[in-house]
Design a protein around this nucleic acid. Structure first.
Lengths: 224, 224
DNA sequence: TAGATTGTTAATCGATTAACAATC
DNA sequence: TAGATTGTTAATCGATTAACAATC
C-alpha cells in the first residue's frame, strides 16, 4: 500500500496563503482550548478583518473540508493546517549568533508549536561560548559542521551581523543545512537545493512608515 | 509659494515595492561608502537576485531619475528612497514590553537609519521599571499616556505577550499614537486613523517550512 | 423547510514580466 | 558612432474579489 506524506488532496498554495495560515491556526487553537468544536470561515474572517472568501480558499488549500451551514471542525482544521505547514513534526535547528536578537529567539517558546526547536547556538565570541541562554548551550562555531552532520540538522537560523551573514550561510550549507532562516538584511547566495527565508524588519518598518505618512496626509504646506 | 512635502513627481507604490526599497537602500549606502558615484538597476538586480525591470520600476516610483548608459547617481537614489519612506527624518517612538524581544529591539542601532528612534520603554513588571536597557529607560506603563501626549509621540512598538497586545494597543491609541509596530501575532483592532504593521515571525517560518518541504520533495513512502 | 455556509467557476485587479523606442 | 541602460507601453501571470449553485 502506498502512503503519501501529504495524505488527502492538497492543492498548491501561494505565498500569501501560506503566510495567512499561521494566523488561522492561532485562532483555531484558541477556540480548541475553549472547546469550540466547529468554526465558520465567516468567523475567522471577522477576527482577522479579511474577506471570508479568502479564508475559505486558504483553508481549502490545506485539504480541510467543511460542511455547509456548520463550518469546519476545529480540530480537523488545525490538523490540516499544521500538516500542510509541516508543523506536526518538530524539526531541530541550530542558531548562529547569540547576540540580542539571537538570545530573544532562543527564549521564545512558541517555535515548538511551529515545528521548530532550536537545540544549540553557536558564536565566535569566547565570552559567550560555554554559556547557556534560555537553557540552550552556546558552542564554538568550529563545532557546527561536524555536529550538524552527525545530528542531521536541516534548519539553520542566522542572527549575526550583516557582514558575517554570507560567511555563516556558507558554513551552514557546507554542513548540510537545507533551510536557512535569515535575520540579517543580506540576500544570501545559496545553492539551488538550499532554501532561505529572510526576516526583514526594515521592510516592515518601511510599510509602516509609508502607511503613517499617507494617513497623516501629504498636505500641501503653505510657506510664509 | 507652495511647497509639497513630496517634492518631485512621485507615483504610487504598492506594498511589494515598498518592501523592496530598504534592500536597495542598503546596497546603495554600501556603494556610497565605497565612493561609487553611479549605479545601474542591472547591478542592483544582480545583487538581489531579482529582475532589473523590477528595480527600475521601484526606483522610478520614488521619483529618482537615471541616465541611459550611466544609471542613477548613488547619492540621489539614496536621497529619493529615504525621502519616499520618510526616513530622512528620525521619528521618536515608545516601546512597550521590555522582555527578550523588546530588549533586542532596543539594542538595535540600525533603526535610526530607518527613521525610528526608540526613546523610552514601558513595562508593568516592577523589577524592570527603573532599569536602563541599552541606554533606554524602562518606565511604568502608567506614565505612557501623559508622556506620549506631552512629547507628541506618534509611533509605538508592541513587544508584549499576545494576551496583552490589544490592551496595550488601546492605551497607545488613547495616548494619541498613530502608528503601531506590532510584534505580537495578534491582529489589533484600531480606529481608522491609526495604522498598524504586524511583524509576524510565524508567517515567515511558515514560508520557510513549505519551501523546505517542497525542496525535499513529497516523495511517496512505501509501507512495509 | 429555510437559510447560512461551503466550494466552484468567472471577473477583476494589481503586480510582474516582456518588448522596445529613446538617449546619453 | 555603438551599445548599455533608462523609461514607457503592452502582455502575462497570479491573487483577490464576485457570483452562485450545492447542501447540511
Amino acid at each position: 500500500m502506498k502512503n503519501s506524506i501529504r495524505d488527502n488532496e492538497q492543492r498548491k498554495a501561494g505565498i500569501p496563503t501560506i503566510k495567512r495560515l499561521p494566523q488561522y491556526l492561532r485562532i483555531l487553537k484558541d477556540l480548541e482550548k475553549q472547546d469550540v468544536e466547529t468554526v465558520s470561515t465567516t468567523f475567522l474572517a471577522q477576527e482577522l478583518n479579511i474577506e471570508p472568501i479568502v479564508v475559505r480558499k486558504d483553508i481549502a488549500s490545506t485539504g480541510a473540508e467543511g460542511k455547509p451551514r456548520i463550518g469546519f471542525t476545529t480540530k480537523e482544521a488545525i490538523k490540516k493546517i499544521e500538516h500542510f505547514l509541516g508543523w506536526d513534526n518538530v524539526t531541530e535547528a541550530f542558531l548562529v549568533g547569540a547576540g540580542n536578537l539571537g538570545s530573544a529567539l532562543m527564549g521564545y517558546q512558541g517555535f515548538q508549536n511551529h515545528g521548530l526547536k532550536i537545540i544549540a547556538a553557536f558564536d565566535k565570541d569566547d565570552k559567550k561560548i560555554g554559556q547557556e541562554i534560555h537553557g540552550i548551550k552556546v558552542l564554538s562555531m568550529e563545532k557546527l559542521p561536524n555536529l550538524a552532520k552527525r545530528m542531521h540538522i536541516h534548519i539553520g537560523v542566522i542572527c549575526v551581523d550583516a557582514e558575517h551573514a554570507q560567511e555563516v550561510s556558507d558554513i551552514m550549507v557546507e554542513a548540510g543545512i537545507k533551510a536557512i532562516w535569515n535575520f540579517t538584511p543580506v540576500k544570501l547566495k545559496t545553492p539551488d537545493d538550499v532554501v532561505s527565508q529572510k526576516e526583514d524588519l526594515s521592510s516592515g518598518l518601511a510599510v509602516l512608515s509609508v502607511k503613517l505618512a499617507s494617513k497623516l496626509g501629504f498636505v500641501d504646506i503653505e510657506e510664509v
